[in-house]
Amino acid sequence: MSDNAIRISDLTVRYGRMIAVDHAALDVTRGSVYALVGRNGAGKSSLVRCLLGQQRPQSGSASLFGEDAWSRRTSLMQRVGVVSEDADAPPEMSVAAIARFCSRLYDKWDQDGVEARLRTFGVPLTSRFGSLSKGQRKQVSLAMALAIAPELLVLDDPTLGLDVVARKSLFEEVIGDLADRGTTIFITTHDLAGVETFADRVGMMEHGRIVLDEDVDALKSRFRRIRFAAQPVAIDTAALRPTVMRSWGGGAEAIVSNYDDVSFERMRSTNNIGAAEVEAMSLEEIFIAIAGGNNS
């Protein structure tokens, strides 16, 4: 049995001449929460479609629980709950009909759980799917995905369209609870603050490439914002690598991607730097720093 719930190897997706995913590779271990972030058009959805066996990559492979996602999709989907980026159920169907339809396709189905979650979300079973708001549709999709007690939950931008309360509920009550129970979660999102508390690992895509794939703790420990009271004459880049360097007030602000206390103190003494303030950064700030740095 594979330790990885997800393995993506050298995966490439092209649409004509445009490369959507460029030799991407990542692993998600069982029971972990993986957050894939990236700007719009970075290739996240194409990667997710390959991951779910909905699209065949031009090269490379995507496997779930050690099985090829393309060729073993039907059986794998018994173990995978999916919340798509665009809620995709036929608009004419009622929520109850969607639940009834799905229940017949899966080996196990928790109808009571579905109804309870929909009650919590405030979505009536009799509502037509097409008449629901974007956020409610996501909630319906999530309720259906959770009804099979999935081993893997794939959430493609699940907070899109959710209000602040619903977003908080999704992250803290649903995903947090699932994560605690050992369900593997793969989430693509722009809401880094939401996933920060429970994501074990984070990946970042840019222009189809995975430019970052790291444990959240390690990532957060090596990124620091350093504010200098005065403009430093120079920074020893061998010791601390500034991703961003800019003026700040009368001094300067540097974001370094390889911070550690020893290196910082050595740099401070070597370069005769006066007062400096070191701050930890949120995932969102790191993402902006990386994205901004790469763009610049």
């Binding site: 479609r49 909905q54 989907m77 995709d88 799905c102 396709l105």
Partner: peptide, 17 residues
């Protein structure tokens, strides 16, 4: 229509061949 409206994933994200 399901293909052009992007709704085919409703079936393909479920265990249906």
């Amino acid at each position: 229509r399901d293909l052009s409206d992007g709704r085919m994933s409703f079936y393909f994200s479920r265990p249906a061949g």
